[in-house]
Every structure is written in structure tokens, then in C-alpha cells.
Computed example of a mutant assay.
Amino acid sequence: MLLSKGFEIEVYTGTPEGEVVGMSDKIVATLDGFVREPDSRNVEYTTPPSYRYERSLCDLVRPRTQLRQYLKQLGNYTLIPGSTLSLGGADRFHRSDPENPYHDYIEQTYGTKVVTASVHINVGISDPEVLMRACRLVRLEAPLYLALSAASPFLDGEVTGYHSTRWGLFPKTPAHVPLFASHAHFINWTEAQLAAGTMQNVRHLWSSVRPNGDRRPYNLNRLELRICDLVSDPIALLAITALLEARLIQLIENPDLDPLKLSELSPEELVTLTDQNESLAAKASLQAELRHWRDGKLILAQDWVEELYGEVWSIAKKHGFSCFLLPVKKILREGNEAQRWLKLQQQGWDSQHILMDAIQTMQTQELALQEELLVA
């Protein structure tokens, strides 16, 4: 029993020197499958739901290859890794659609705090009550997925003190989101937020994880994990996804795997704990000292991921995708992208040279994968 997986990938476009240049209006007008964000400097593509990881890998790589080819037609342009405006440009918005009133609201309310690049991982779960249980568990473990994916230690050319500046600055909305005890709780809460104006529409729920579907909050069919920075290596992204999927299969097979049943803390205490854990993971990623949702005891994010990996390895093996889970070990061994960039910075590299090197690495990885996929 594999679950369906789909990705929403936001990525910056710009020059090989790391300058971010807005081109989403041209991209969206020319290429199928790409949509614009409120700011023109990043663009989004969505992969269709797929059960098999091999299929997901194709779906992740091919649109990027297509996008790169189009960018070459426009000039010496490329894709830029990282989840913030690493080298500059965070002082003002570059509107992609000046006529869009929702974009007016976004710009006026949040400014460039939302001009970030990220990955949203969607996993199909059709039963709404199982989905709510999954959202409860994944929300409390979301800081671990942020820790594995952190890729934004710079903003405007400066080291910010965050491994994920994106999540450190991101305006989570509404400010307080409870753990939803049931589908009915989620429906009632959403309707109340819309009536109060704390949410502008049903999409305006910007938390680490949310239930998603064709007619929110009523018709739901997937869990959407929104906390991850842009993971520029597709193999690493699939490893993080495999960890999430194995955990969700474990939860489906074991209905008692529910924080509301297993935790010694109250639901309100759990919300406070996970908000604090998200902030700590945004700062120090895998080196963050978090509190476990079961008992509130301190645990290093890296150790918690190791623990989780050990717990779900046999599930991934049983369902035939453990080879895709394996690269989580490489992230734990070598560090996430932010940690690797900061190591170079400590060795004397400046942020521009680090980013230029990452741009080249991202392109080389994609070319190698594209060649493998063509052979396959």
C-alpha cells in the first residue's frame, strides 16, 4: 500500500552569478504547468499525484529541464537554489500580476517576507478522520522535516543566524492554529476564521501542515506539508518524502499513533511546544534542541530524525521504497544545504560564491538525472 504523492515546487529564476530576476509572466505565458506567485521572481510547478517514486522523480526533473531550456532562450539565465533572496532584493516587491486584488493584500500585509521558494509535499489520504490524525502527528513532527530541508541561511547577502531564514520570518497565518480533533472541528474553525477575517479565503491557512482537497474545508483528500525549504536535489527531496510516507503508513496501520492519545501534554501545550520547536529548527535545523511531543523531554533534532528513521525503516522496506529513504542518512551525515553553505562561509567563502557554486551543483545534478531518466 503506497500513498499518492505530489509536489508543489517554487523556485527562483536569475543569473549564474546569483542575481534573482523576475520572469514568471513570460514563463507562465509560454510553458504549460507553471503558475505565477505574487512576486515575479519565483515560479511554481506542480507534479501530478503518483504512487511510485520513479515516476515522481521524472515529474520533478522534467519540468525543470524544460524551464532551463526556455530560460536559455531568454538569455544567460538559470534556476537559483535556496529559499530566500540570498544576495539581495528583499527591500521591495516585484508584482507578477498588478491587477490581482489578493496579491494587493499579500504585498500590503506581508511585504517580501513571503517572497520565498519552498516545497509543499502532498500525500493522499481520503478518509477525513484519518487525515486529521495524520495532520496532528505530522504537525508535531514538522520541525524535523524543516531540519532536513533547511536551505536559507542568507538574506540580502548577509548571514542571518537562521538555517531557514524563510521559516524564521514566514508569517504563519492565522497566528494560532489548534490541533484539529476531528473533521468537524476543522470545518467549524475554518468557517469562524473566514467570518472573522483572519483568513481571506480557504487557501489562507499558512501553517506547517494543513488538510487539503478540492473543496476545503469540506471535501479533503490529502495532507499538505508546507514547512520544507526548497530542496534542490530531487533525490534528497524524495528521501524526505519517503520518511513522511513511511510515518503516515505507520499511522494508518496503527490508529493509536495519535498525539491526542499518546502525549502527556494537553492539546494547547502541544501547540505551544510545536511552535517553539519550529522556531528552534528554523534557527539551528538538525542541531536544534527540541522538545518531544510525547513527554516534552529535550532531544536533538538530528537524534529525533535518527529515531524516526529507525522506527519506519522496516515499513519502507516492506512496501518497497527503502532505497528512496536511504539518502536521509546522507543528509544526517553531511548536513542539509544550509549547513553545507555555512561551513563554506566559515572557510572564508562569501555568500555570492557559495550561491554560484550551488547553482552549478543544482544544474549538474539535474543534467545527470535527466540523462539517467532518458536511458531508463
Rank of each mutant, 00 (worst) to 15 (best):
S207C: 09
N212P: 02
Y145H: 12
A184T: 11
T165A: 14
G157R: 08
L155C: 12
I187N: 03
G168S: 07
T173D: 10
L194G: 05
R210D: 01
L144G: 08
A196M: 09
S149N: 03
L179A: 08
R203Q: 05
H204G: 06
I187E: 09
T190S: 06
A151D: 09
A192Y: 01
W189I: 10
H185P: 08
S149Y: 03
S164L: 06
G168I: 02
H204Y: 08
W189A: 12
P171K: 04
R203L: 00
S152P: 10
V159M: 13
A181Y: 12
I187C: 10
G157A: 10
A181M: 14
F154A: 11
E141H: 07
G213S: 11
W167Q: 08
W167K: 06
R166V: 04
N201F: 03
P174M: 01
L194H: 04
L194I: 07
V159Y: 05
T165Q: 13
G197V: 00
H204N: 15
R203C: 02
P153N: 13
Q193S: 11
L155P: 10
T198S: 14
G157H: 06
H163Y: 14
L205H: 01
T198Q: 08
R203Y: 04
H163N: 14
F170S: 00
E141M: 13
P174L: 01
Q200N: 14
N188G: 13
S152A: 14
A147I: 07
Q193L: 13
F170G: 01
R210M: 00
L179Y: 05
W167C: 02
R166D: 03
Q193W: 06
Q193N: 12
A196E: 11
S207W: 10
D156M: 07
N188D: 14
G197P: 07
V202D: 05
Q200G: 08
L155S: 11
A195G: 10
T173L: 11
P178F: 10
A175W: 02
F180T: 01
H176Y: 15
V159F: 08
V209A: 04
P178S: 14
G197Y: 03
G157D: 08
R210Y: 05
A184E: 15
L169I: 15
M199S: 14
S207K: 02
G197E: 04
D156A: 13
L205M: 11
F180N: 00
H183M: 11
T160Q: 12
H183W: 15
T190Y: 03
A175H: 02
G168V: 05
W167D: 02
H163E: 15
E191K: 15
F170N: 02
M199G: 00
A175E: 06
S182P: 13
P143N: 02
V177F: 01
N201R: 06
